[in-house]
Design a protein around this nucleic acid. Structure first.
Lengths: 352, 352
DNA sequence: CTGAAAGCGCTTACAG
DNA sequence: CTGAAAGCGCTTACAG
């Protein structure tokens, strides 16, 4: 592949001149420019970004690490980040940690060594000790946490308002008349999970509904765990008439559990899931879901990172918290005992 | 960030020695090694991959460009590639062309300029002229086409056996007794689309069912186009009793069309979709789908690329074609006219 | 076994 | 306006 040197030698001009026309900077006489451009074209010249990056000390490249790229929530988050970055001439490198600390560690090191300008991280589940090693792994590469953030305040992060999301989902069920409301929570070592559960508790408290610990199940964010935790809930002596499920894969699992327990949704049990996505209206029944603004999360995180890159980097770290939205479809309804007793019509939303 | 030079100076040894211990190559006396390792540790040394890549002329990095990362089919393909590459110490860079030629072009150039070792490409829809410019865009960076391949034979590619997939889906419907079978095809400028349609025609021919052009609708791979093409089919004077839909998003759209046409699946119309994925069993009805081995596609493409990288690169280009699988659920059944006439029980599969 | 030096391809003051 | 030269951080023959 042709280099600037070769082009310069061939044309008997200096490399600075060739470099100037390649980068459209500095003055080059029109005739000179034309000659160089033609030579570049003929030689099929392509700048070597590694050399350029080495010289410049930056690559206009940002990395994003997510815990599961097959989960459309993260795919949309990625897209939000990419669109924002592309509009400013930055490239996005993507990686999937598979919720495994070792993979995440390797990616962090790899991106830091590759001298990526900055890193966007949806951290995988990890212990406090692991989290504490992150700064050391990445050296001085700027980092912004997205969607999930560690508990310490000294980081930049962009997350959803999970407390309010949990509160809103639970309140909706309470308003329909449900009093025994179960929750399949995310792991509590994830701040998101803890916050959503806190919102649930807050909603019960606001309505003066006593907290029943047997209705709180902590899942592992997988379809399987949604299934098993759901079954536990349904075989309780006094089972819930409604369930909040804090992640989309677990919602899927809970649907299976419902089926295997011969329960019908929403007739027997109402369900509110988390992380709405394109297929939800087509599920059976169409699911009421909390929509978390994935693309905005990605875009704002990218924005915060670039700000950190360009600013002196001395401003205080900040956490941005985005509102969520409750999308009602057909998986939530007035509880059976109430519609029987009170004769109220069953609460349903049209499909759209 | 500390450099090898700095470490060497500080220790009063040569850079070669430091480099040798960093890379665990060549002989360094144990005491020397220990001293260097400690200094490296203290200085929090991280090798600069750009410098290394510039010097070595390779980066152990491969790029993958897909047309839609929010489509779980491509997410799984990506995962297959990543797993294979990681096992051999290669990194994967991901990009999403959004089915837009301009984005794809920029990524190709960017990866080529970044001196990525090789590129895996699921090409976006493009004209023959656009396709013809690809070699020029990427210079001599090795390229393997995945899932979709251009028509010329002079490329490496790993694709599904789409002719047979279309044949199997259609044959299944024919065996159930359907004779008016519609198809919502992918765009025909995509070889995949053309092949799946060819398989459909082949199946009809094998059963001596006359081809009815009004039953063939060409969609655009979007949910919207699945919806509209589906409606066209259903409002035919003589509508189909079954439909093959050649892509997962279009299948989604067709489900909406069915609903809006007040048709029930599979009672009124049977449906076989393409690109099975995790939520299909939960859809209403659970969908019978052609499963394309996305992860294998990704892994084998990565393998073919590495072979090209390491081999002298002189072997003939080759196309690898993977078999698909028909997954039967509840969206396909004996046609109504037949169950009425023949008194046969309706053909159903359990949900599993 | 260890050190001095060249060179990967580029950009950018600094002269002329 | 254009050219000669240094240097980004690394690896690797080549001497010693």
């Amino acid at each position: 592949m042709a280099t600037i040197q070769e082009i310069a030698r061939q044309l008997r001009v200096s490399v600075s001149t060739v470099s100037a026309v390649v980068n459209r900077r500095g003055y080059v006489s029109p005739t000179m420019r034309a000659r160089v451009e033609q030579a570049l074209e003929e030689a099929q010249y392509r700048p070597n970004d590694m050399a350029r990056g080495l010289r410049l000390g930056r690559s206009r490249t940002v990395a994003l690490i997510v815990p599961d790229l097959t989960n459309s929530f993260y795919a949309r988050l990625m897209r939000g980040a990419e669109d924002y970055l592309a509009s400013l001439g930055y490239r996005l490198l993507l990686a999937d940690s598979r919720e495994e600390w070792n993979r995440q560690r390797e990616y962090l090191v790899s991106f830091a060594n590759g001298r990526t300008d900055g890193i966007l991280l949806v951290p995988c589940r990890s212990t406090d000790e692991q989290l504490a090693t992150i700064p050391q792994l990445i050296g001085k590469t700027p980092l912004v946490y997205v969607d999930r953030s560690p508990l310490g305040p000294a980081v930049d992060s962009v997350v959803a308002d999970n407390v309010h999301a949990g509160y809103a989902a639970t309140s909706h069920l309470l308003e329909l008349g449900h009093r025994r409301i179960g929750i399949v929570s995310e792991p509590l070592d994830l701040l998101n999970g803890a916050d959503r559960l806190a919102g649930y508790k807050k909603a019960l408290r606001a309505r003066r509904v006593a907290l029943d610990r047997s209705l709180i199940r902590v899942g592992a964010n997988t379809e399987d765990s949604g299934y098993w935790q759901g079954l536990e809930l349904f075989k309780l002596a006094n089972p819930p008439t409604a369930v909040v499920v804090c992640n989309n894969l677990m919602t899927l699992g809970l649907l299976s559990a419902l089926r295997d327990a011969r329960l019908e949704c929403p007739r027997d049990v109402s369900v509110v899931g988390f992380d709405d996505f394109e297929w939800c209206p087509y599920l059976s029944p169409p699911l009421s879901m909390v929509r978390v603004p994935a693309a905005e999360l990605g875009a704002l995180a990218a924005k915060a990172l670039l700000k950190r890159l360009n600013g002196a980097g001395k401003e205080a770290r900040e956490t941005i918290r985005l509102p969520t939205q409750l999308v009602l479809r057909e998986s939530t309804a007035t509880p059976a005992w109430k519609s029987l007793a009170g004769g109220k019509t069953q609460h349903r939303r049209s499909r759209e």
